[in-house]
Structure formats: structure tokens, C-alpha cells
Design a protein around this nucleic acid. Structure first.
Length: 229
DNA sequence: ATCCCGAGGG
DNA sequence: CCCTCTGGAT
């Protein structure tokens, strides 16, 4: 086993112990709720999404109900997740498209998923992995930052990062690894103020102590009394 | 006051 | 490649 692979695997094992699946953000039981929640989660904390989704799904539990919602009501209900104008329109148009093009079901291929409004590669991969059990690596910007930091890929291109990480990790682990890394990126290893005190990866992290909070090239320095020492 | 960082469109 | 959309966290 080459050293790079060994390192990636030891990081995964550390994360696996620290973050059981139940603690991760994606706790939706049906594909419709999952895809809507994932659209809403774009550039938004999972805390905000988790506040907004229970009343949303109580009122609009199916594509059919959401397709005929009042757009202003959808906007109001998802407002605090940011970009609410786009998101409300997207989840409604997405619902309508599920009805017209997919018999009211969430499709299960990448090609079909990315035709839905508000669904890009990241959202599609989340749905494939968690609603349909299709093994895959989901690269969001948190994953991208961690990949950059730990040297899993020499590329910034998410598709290339996906392929490179797939070579480091057994297929069986892809979905869980993605979920745990994204969770770790959102809750611990933010770009802004990483919670290094709560991070299980300190001993492996090439950035710890340097004050580097985002791109390695950027080498942003923070004050000594903040998260980094 | 600045930055977060997914999707879509130019 | 570039830019915009937004509330919230810092």
C-alpha cells in the first residue's frame, strides 16, 4: 500500500469512529424529501435546513402537493436558507418536472437528476448515494478543501477529484466517506473558523498550526488567539 | 463589513 | 472563465 493511500485510509477510519452515520446531516427517508432538502442545503448550514424542512414537508409532503403550492408561501418557508427566490422556484419546478417527466418519482441516474432545476452534480451524487445506494464520491467545496489539504488529488476539478479519491478508497466506503467528510467540513473544518480543538485529524493535518484556513496557495493567516495556535 | 460556496447563466 | 443570487455567521 502506498503512503498516500495509507494516510487517506487512516483518516477515514478516524472519521468513521468519530462520526456515526446517524449524526450526519442526511436523515431523510424518502427520495423526494432528500432531494428537496439537498437543494435547500446549497451554501447554507445544515442547521438552517433542519429548521425549515419539518414544516415544509408537513405542508408539502409530495411532488404533487409541492407542485401546486403558492410560490410566495414556498419562498417564505425556505427564506432563511438563503437564495430563497431561486430555491423556492427550483423546488417547485423540480416537483412539476418529477410529475411531468418521471411519473412523480425521483429519477435514479446522474443524467436524469441533473436535468432537474436546482440539481447539479453535488446534489445528484448525494441523492444517488443516499436514496438509491449507488456508490459514489460526492465532492462539495468542503470535500474539495479537505482533498486539497490532504493531497488526495492534484486537481481542482471535482470530477477528477472524484476519480482520484475512488482509487484511494474501496467502493463500499465511497458514500459513507463522502457523507462524513462533508459533515466534517461543515461542522468542524470550515473555511472561516475551523474548530481544530474538536478535530480528530489534528495529528494528520498538514495545515494545523500554520494558520492556513483555505486554499494552500492562499496561506491566509489568522490571529494567534483564534482557532489555530 | 466580509465571506460563505451550489447552481445556473453569460 | 466570469458573475449573480441571499440570510446568516463571524
Amino acid at each position: 500500500m502506498n503512503p498516500e493511500k495509507k494516510r487517506a485510509l487512516s483518516i477515514f477510519k478516524t472519521l468513521g469512529k468519530r462520526y456515526p452515520s446517524a449524526d450526519c446531516e442526511l436523515d431523510f427517508t424518502n427520495p423526494f424529501e432528500l432531494i428537496v432538502a439537498t437543494v435547500l442545503s446549497a451554501q447554507c448550514t445544515d442547521k438552517r435546513v433542519n429548521l425549515v424542512t419539518p414544516p415544509l414537508f408537513k405542508k408539502y409532503p409530495t411532488p404533487k402537493k409541492m407542485a401546486s403550492a403558492k410560490i410566495l408561501d414556498l419562498e417564505e418557508m425556505v427564506r432563511t436558507t438563503g437564495f430563497y427566490h431561486n430555491k423556492a422556484r427550483n423546488i417547485q419546478m423540480l416537483s412539476q418536472k418529477l410529475l411531468t417527466d418521471f411519473d412523480g418519482e425521483v429519477p435514479s441516474t446522474l443524467e436524469e437528476l441533473i436535468t432537474l432545476p436546482g440539481v447539479g452534480r453535488k446534489t445528484a451524487n448525494v441523492v444517488l448515494g443516499h436514496a438509491f445506494g449507488v456508490p459514489g464520491i460526492t465532492v462539495d467545496t468542503h470535500f474539495g478543501r479537505l482533498s486539497r489539504r490532504f493531497g488526495w488529488s492534484d486537481s481542482e476539478d471535482p470530477v477528477k477529484v472524484e476519480r482520484d479519491v475512488m482509487e484511494l478508497i474501496p467502493e463500499k466506503e465511497w458514500t459513507n466517506l463522502s457523507q462524513r467528510l462533508i459533515w466534517h467540513g461543515r461542522r468542524i473544518c470550515h473555511a472561516r473558523k475551523p474548530a481544530c480543538g474538536a478535530c480528530p485529524l489534528i495529528s494528520l493535518c498538514p495545515s494545523y498550526g500554520i494558520g492556513e484556513t483555505d486554499k494552500i496557495e492562499a496561506m491566509k493567516l489568522v490571529k494567534p488567539d483564534s482557532a489555530f495556535r
